[in-house]
Design a binder for these strands. Sequence first.
DNA 1: TGCTAGACTGAAAGTGCTTTCAGTCGTTCT
DNA 2: AGAACGACTGAAAGCACTTTCAGTCTAGCA
Lengths: 334, 334
Amino acid sequence: MAPKKPTIYDVAKTSGVSISTISRVLNSPDKVNTKTRERVMSAIDRLGFVPRAEARARAMRNTNRIGVLTPFFTAPSFVQRLRGVAGALSRANCELVIYTVDSVEHLQAYIASIPIMQNLDGLIIISLAIEEKDAHRLHDNGIETVLIESWHAQLNCICIDDLRGGGLAAKYLIGRGHTRIGFFGDIEPPERYAIRPVKSRLIGFKRALEEAGLSLPRRYVVRAPYTQAGLQQAAHALLALPHPPTAIFAASDIQAISIMKVARQANLRIPEDLAIVGFDDIDLAEFMDLTTIRQDLDESGRLAAEILVSKKADPGRSLQHINLPLTLIQRQTA
Amino acid sequence: MAPKKPTIYDVAKTSGVSISTISRVLNSPDKVNTKTRERVMSAIDRLGFVPRAEARARAMRNTNRIGVLTPFFTAPSFVQRLRGVAGALSRANCELVIYTVDSVEHLQAYIASIPIMQNLDGLIIISLAIEEKDAHRLHDNGIETVLIESWHAQLNCICIDDLRGGGLAAKYLIGRGHTRIGFFGDIEPPERYAIRPVKSRLIGFKRALEEAGLSLPRRYVVRAPYTQAGLQQAAHALLALPHPPTAIFAASDIQAISIMKVARQANLRIPEDLAIVGFDDIDLAEFMDLTTIRQDLDESGRLAAEILVSKKADPGRSLQHINLPLTLIQRQTA
DNA sequence: TGCTAGACTGAAAGTGCTTTCAGTCGTTCT
DNA sequence: AGAACGACTGAAAGCACTTTCAGTCTAGCA
């Protein structure tokens, strides 16, 4: 005589509540009174209850899980976006599944398998260059997707205007009376999968300088490898020029801070001898009193998550192509 | 437009039979007239019908997924551990599910439901104080768990020796000839769920000072709220003392860097006028040339993930209680 | 031609769980 | 004290199939 597997009905009976409460205890435990929950849990333990995955899958139209595809997160900016996503998702009590990507193949493999697994309510792709056919695959399979920092007509997007950001920095520095202004960015790594906004920022920056009648000499444009040593060495070389710039726009805060450090070592006063403007406004920027172009990183993540959550609630909502505002945050370095 | 997934009802409609027949075609084809069967099969092909529940259930069963319970990650140290986890898991081709915890109830609710839903191959709990009964529940239900920065006899643990870390800092500073040495830590927030290693670091620090015949006067021990303003204000107060310390051990790098900043503003030379030792060795520490006690944060995450992965491959492996080494990394600040 | 066994089929009743929608209480605000 | 509120809870309506059961139809037989 096999003792039949207990169902939530059995648990409900022995713990004296209704099946809905059992279900809630399991799925959104914070919505049920601690005392009730404990009673239910003990009944569950006593009976050795295990919900049948098959029944569960059937009743659940949505999995309440959203995925994030991100490059392996080393840069602070990824972390802050992720933080925004995590915050919003936690409020919506949604699971967050993270896939870190470290090659194009990896990325494509994920994208290919996601529709088939269909165990994701939505997908956020951060700073990854996705190919047309992959975008199509996602769209055709009806996977709600939000691209952060990249663009596709058929998918939700959250971008910033890097061109404008570069221009903003240029105008600000020009406004402060600078005429010898340099640019400091990293070298785009060979990986094809990552998005590199540096070039756009440089273009916007250069254009604004030229519109103001200033030139951006070749030697004022530095592109260094994204490493401690690489950055510092390049910064050093730039500042050691015969007529070094009096102001520098760095394509990211990390780079701006590298320069600050080297400048300090060279006994340059900031901003008197050297003005510095960064880009991103990572946490650290406030900490270092860095004047920078803010793109609200947390907000971009939050927004992405919210788009997905609200799409889930109301699938009819239309595609969103959002351009996040950039603002110059004036602090002590320029 | 919306590429909705076809159900058995759609197949029934387009092939002009009832759903029961579809079901039979799929489950016991020999009981269905060949002609009907073919009609049904062609409809199935045409619609690309895949029984939903089955796929879902399968997807839920072989999870290949490990979960991380973490406080909402604001501090860089969480991020670095998470990074370690993500790296190892990505190599093992495992999904990473993140649950951010923001209250004890939240935490307990998660812990309670995880074993039952059994949709996780393993669980990593970062810097969270878990209660005896919760530990038991995890253990009893056979959920492979790794605790980072906390301790339980029946679960895998990865810890560091905070006492020793404090001692290490003290001995180093004493060795550099300092006698007026201060401590700078944050105030433990009221949340019961988070682990606070500050106190242990202070105790170990104080003990080592006393063993060397030095005292740690009350006014040299500062505990500030973990905020920009709070930290800086407290640092300022400490340095403005009539006889300020000549060296400070900060309970974390972030706090050490706060002090550096305030010290610079006060025109103190580092390390000549004020030596500073931090704790953690976050990325930023190298960047700031901060002398600090390294606990390898990435490594702790990596190790946790690897324990879980290898347990999955070979469930017989024994419990691991790992004590990660601490090393003093000498840089420019002390 | 009238009957009936046997092969098929569809309506409807599960299946075990989730979720919506009210309704019940205990609180807080006024 | 009364009203308005909000946290909990249970009843009941799904969900996407499977199965049972009672037919319908056809072929085979007298």
